[in-house]
Simulated scan of single mutants.
Amino acid sequence: MSKFAIVATIKTIPGKRSEYLTHLRAHAQRCLATEPGTLKFEVLVPQKEDDTIMLYEVYASPEAFEAHWTGPSVQQAKQDTTPLRVSLSGVRCDFAE
């Protein structure tokens, strides 16, 4: 299987983006350090959307993403951030060859 990417958009409760980012940065570091199939985890903040965060994540395979999604770091991140979030959506993307 080939690698693929996730592009996600998170809408935070107004005024909570900074707090959410603190938890999200810790999550990204945990994933990159402990999940061999997590190849990239970039956190982006749109310039004109104060309560929005975007993610660009690259995984070695669909199985690596499933291991990430069901793993302990995601569970911790959900516990830390769910009260700060309005919505979360993501799109699975293939790389153009």
Rank of each mutant, 00 (worst) to 15 (best):
M1S: 09
S2M: 10
K3H: 11
K3M: 14
F4S: 05
F4T: 05
F4M: 13
F4H: 15
I6N: 15
V7F: 01
A8E: 02
A8K: 04
A8M: 02
T9Y: 00
T9V: 10
T9K: 05
K11E: 12
T12E: 05
T12H: 01
I13A: 14
P14W: 03
G15C: 05
G15P: 07
K16S: 12
S18M: 11
S18D: 15
E19F: 02
Y20N: 11
Y20G: 02
T22E: 14
H23W: 00
R25S: 08
A26W: 08
Q29M: 11
R30V: 06
R30E: 14
L32N: 01
A33K: 07
T34I: 07
T34M: 13
T34K: 05
E35R: 08
E35H: 12
E35A: 10
F41P: 04
F41G: 11
E42C: 08
L44E: 05
V45W: 10
Q47V: 14
Q47T: 04
E49I: 11
E49C: 06
D51E: 11
T52S: 01
M54C: 06
E57W: 00
V58E: 13
Y59W: 05
A60Q: 08
A60N: 10
P62Y: 08
E63A: 15
E66D: 10
E66Q: 09
A67P: 00
H68F: 06
H68P: 00
W69A: 15
P72R: 03
P72K: 11
S73I: 04
Q75L: 07
Q75A: 09
Q75D: 01
Q76F: 03
Q76H: 02
Q76I: 03
A77G: 02
A77C: 09
K78T: 08
T81S: 04
T82A: 13
T82I: 05
L84P: 00
R85C: 03
R85T: 09
V86D: 11
V86L: 02
S87W: 00
S87A: 10
V91S: 13
V91T: 13
R92G: 13
R92N: 11
C93D: 06
C93S: 14
D94H: 15
A96T: 13
